[in-house]
Simulated scan of single mutants.
Amino acid sequence: MPDTKKGEAFAKLVLRVWRDPDFKARLFKDPMPLLAEYGVETPPGLKVKVVENEPGTIHLVLPSAPAKVSQQQEEPVYTIQCAVCHSRDSCLTHHS
């Protein structure tokens, strides 16, 4: 699915969360079926934990460390990308 379609699918899911408290509770409890229902693809075996930003606070999610990172390593081993950059409040990587 192209990134635009992924973004649209995620935006529809977020709108539903904002409008429907029961749906939101289900998303927090068991996100995988609801993500799939909205066309948000996840790799097999991936675990998803849902967190919610609050006004004035965002969650900074650090990536897992790769298997081999030396104490002397100075160059990054990955590139930061937004999976879905749907608002300034949820993304620090593309907004200043």
Rank of each mutant, 00 (worst) to 15 (best):
K49D: 13
E74Y: 09
A25Y: 02
D20A: 02
T79R: 15
L15M: 09
K5A: 15
S90I: 08
H94A: 12
V50C: 02
D3C: 07
G7E: 10
K47M: 13
K68I: 06
E75H: 13
G39E: 04
V61S: 13
V48P: 05
T79L: 11
D22S: 04
S64G: 12
A9S: 15
K5S: 12
G45E: 04
E75P: 09
Y78V: 06
V17E: 01
A11L: 11
G7C: 08
V40T: 06
K5E: 15
S96V: 08
P43R: 06
S90K: 08
C82P: 09
R16A: 01
L60N: 13
F23K: 03
V40C: 04
E37R: 03
P33R: 03
A83V: 13
V50Y: 01
G7D: 10
P43E: 11
H59Y: 15
V14C: 06
S90M: 10
Y38Q: 02
P31H: 00
C91N: 07
T79F: 13
P76T: 06
G39I: 04
P44E: 14
P43W: 07
P66D: 05
C91M: 07
A11W: 06
I80Q: 09
K5Y: 11
L27E: 00
H94Y: 12
V48F: 05
A25L: 05
L27T: 00
P21M: 00
C91D: 10
Q73N: 11
F10T: 04
A65S: 15
E37N: 04
V48R: 02
H59L: 06
A36L: 11
G7M: 09
P2W: 04
Q72A: 14
K68A: 05
V69M: 12
K5H: 12
K49G: 08
S87R: 09
D3P: 12
E41Y: 15
S64M: 15
C85E: 07
L35P: 02
N53L: 01
V40A: 02
G56P: 06
V69Y: 12
P44C: 09
K47D: 14
S87I: 03
V61N: 14
W18S: 11
S96I: 06
D30A: 01
A65R: 14
A67S: 14
V40Y: 05
Q72E: 15
G39V: 03
K49Y: 12
K12D: 08
L92R: 15
A9T: 06
V50M: 02
E41V: 14
D20Q: 01
T57C: 10
L92E: 13
V84D: 05
K68M: 08
F10M: 09
R19L: 14
S70K: 13
S87H: 07
A36P: 08
V61H: 11
